[in-house]
Amino acid sequence: MSIQHFRVALIPFFAAFCLPVFAHPETLVKVKDAEDQLGARVGYIELDLNSGKILESFRPEERFPMMSTFKVLLCGAVLSRVDAGQEQLGRRIHYSQNDLVEYSPVTEKHLTDGMTVRELCSAAITMSDNTAANLLLTTIGGPKELTAFLHNMGDHVTRLDRWEPELNEAIPNDERDTTMPAAMATTLRKLLTGELLTLASRQQLIDWMEADKVAGPLLRSALPAGWFIADKSGAGERGSRGIIAALGPDGKPSRIVVIYTTGSQATMDERNRQIAEIGASLIKHW
């Protein structure tokens, strides 16, 4: 067993022997301040990774656009098919120029040779490549099948209805392509620590998230040296922004954090800054 596999296998073990965790309302004060600064709703939840206990939450059962955070769930569904012998990570998928959609920095470079399922998941999570996500959605049967996968996990809230990039439209009061912070946090925890996926697939999923290259201005910008984070960000229309993450000190994750916002007129930089400040408060009061 590799060191990384050992780390993920012992996530519940280490967490069980940690000192009790206590909620700190100071972080919620910052979440509410972010709402004021952005002029928009902000949803927040913080779960203990081992027990699933909610440590703090704000608007945990209000719907927010998922945006690209759905790509972690998508690759979880792909990995479940791999575990069941219905898919192979090494299978190569070929596609054409007509398949390319807006923001496809990886797939646009491989029109000639195609990409493997493993490479597509890596591109979808680490670079948020939209064509990679659409190609992977095709392998599982489309958005409705991802929703069905989530329902089978016990998540009857999260739903995907459309493809990239239309799913980022974020129309107010439109339930399409949305989740709730509580539902997303619980589902992410199941994917990373539950028995739904094999140990190898859980490790692969967290490795992809740990290698995320496009979430630097968010929670990662607030992390002290030595902290662990595996995350996936999302951005959408109407001032929408979000991030889902597993993080913790001492090089291992111990909490799940989900943050979503929508309806702001603020710039992307300002949305990023507010999420980073929430992260800084979380870490300060850990």
Rank of each mutant, 00 (worst) to 15 (best):
F64E: 00
T131F: 05
T158Q: 01
P20A: 05
T107H: 01
L47V: 13
A245T: 05
A132E: 00
G141K: 07
R118G: 15
R189L: 10
A170D: 08
M115D: 01
Y95R: 01
A222Y: 09
L19H: 14
L167I: 13
M115E: 03
L191Y: 07
F17T: 11
D99V: 09
A84D: 12
K32M: 15
P249H: 07
E210F: 10
E61Q: 14
L146Y: 06
K213P: 04
L47R: 03
R273K: 15
I54Y: 09
G279E: 02
L223P: 02
A15N: 06
A222E: 13
R41I: 09
A123M: 03
V31C: 14
L100V: 10
R81T: 07
I125C: 08
G216M: 10
I45T: 12
L146M: 13
T158G: 05
L146T: 04
V157D: 15
T267N: 12
E175N: 13
E56M: 08
S221Q: 12
R162D: 09
C121G: 05
D231W: 03
S233N: 01
E61R: 13
I140D: 02
V21K: 06
A246N: 05
K109I: 11
Y95S: 02
P181S: 04
M209F: 03
Y44M: 09
L282M: 14
I256Q: 01
Q274A: 13
L49S: 07
S201H: 13
P172Y: 11
G39W: 08
R273Q: 10
L218W: 02
L135V: 10
V257M: 05
H156S: 11
I256N: 01
P172G: 10
Q265G: 13
G216R: 08
A200E: 14
F6Y: 10
N272Y: 02
T262Y: 15
S96P: 07
D250W: 10
E119M: 06
E26A: 14
R7V: 09
V31P: 01
L135T: 07
A170P: 08
M153N: 10
T178L: 02
V42A: 06
L47S: 06
R238N: 15
T112N: 13
Y260W: 02
K144P: 10
N98H: 14
V78N: 02
M115L: 13
L10C: 11
P172M: 12
D113P: 07
G141L: 04
P217V: 11
R176L: 08
P65C: 04
F13V: 11
T198L: 09
D83R: 03
D174Y: 03
D177E: 01
D269M: 11
D99P: 04
R91S: 07
L199Q: 14
T198V: 07
N168S: 08
H110V: 05
W286E: 02
R81C: 05
M115P: 01
T126M: 09
T27Q: 06
Y103F: 09
D99H: 08
Q97W: 11
R220T: 03
R220H: 04
G248Q: 01
N152H: 15
A266F: 08
L38I: 10
E164M: 00
E210Y: 10
R202C: 06
L136Y: 00
R92S: 10
L282Y: 03
L73A: 11
V21E: 05
K109C: 09
L120A: 06
N98T: 15
A183W: 08
L167M: 12
R189W: 13
E145S: 12
T112E: 15
P25A: 06
L160E: 02
L120F: 04
K190D: 15
E145M: 12
L136Q: 01
S68N: 00
R118L: 12
I283A: 08
G141H: 07
L146R: 00
V101E: 10
L219T: 03
T262S: 11
P249R: 09
D161L: 03
L247T: 06
W163D: 09
G251H: 14
S57W: 11
N272S: 05
L10A: 14
E46K: 10
L49C: 08
K53G: 11
Q37G: 11
A245W: 01
C75S: 07
E195A: 06
D161F: 03
A123T: 05
I275L: 10
S57N: 09
K284G: 12
L146N: 02
P25Q: 13
V72K: 00
G251M: 10
P172C: 11
G142I: 01
L150H: 04
Q86A: 13
T27R: 03
M180F: 11
G76N: 01
T267V: 10
I93H: 05
L196C: 14
Y260P: 00
W163N: 11
P25K: 10
L219E: 03
N98D: 11
L120H: 03
E56D: 12
A246Y: 11
T112V: 13
P143F: 03
N98M: 11
T261E: 06
A230D: 00
A23R: 04
G39K: 15
Q204P: 02
W208V: 02
Q86Y: 12
W286S: 01
T139E: 15
T138K: 15
H151K: 14
M184E: 01
R202G: 07
Q204Y: 09
R241P: 00
N130L: 02
T178E: 02
L196E: 13
D207H: 09
A9Q: 08
M1N: 01
T178D: 02
I45F: 12
N134E: 02
T69W: 00
L10G: 08
R176W: 07
L73G: 06
P224R: 06
R271D: 06
V257R: 00
K213H: 12
E62S: 08
T126C: 11
G279S: 10
E35Y: 02
I243D: 02
G90D: 14
E87T: 08
I171F: 13
V31Y: 01
R241Y: 02
N272H: 04
A280F: 10
V31L: 11
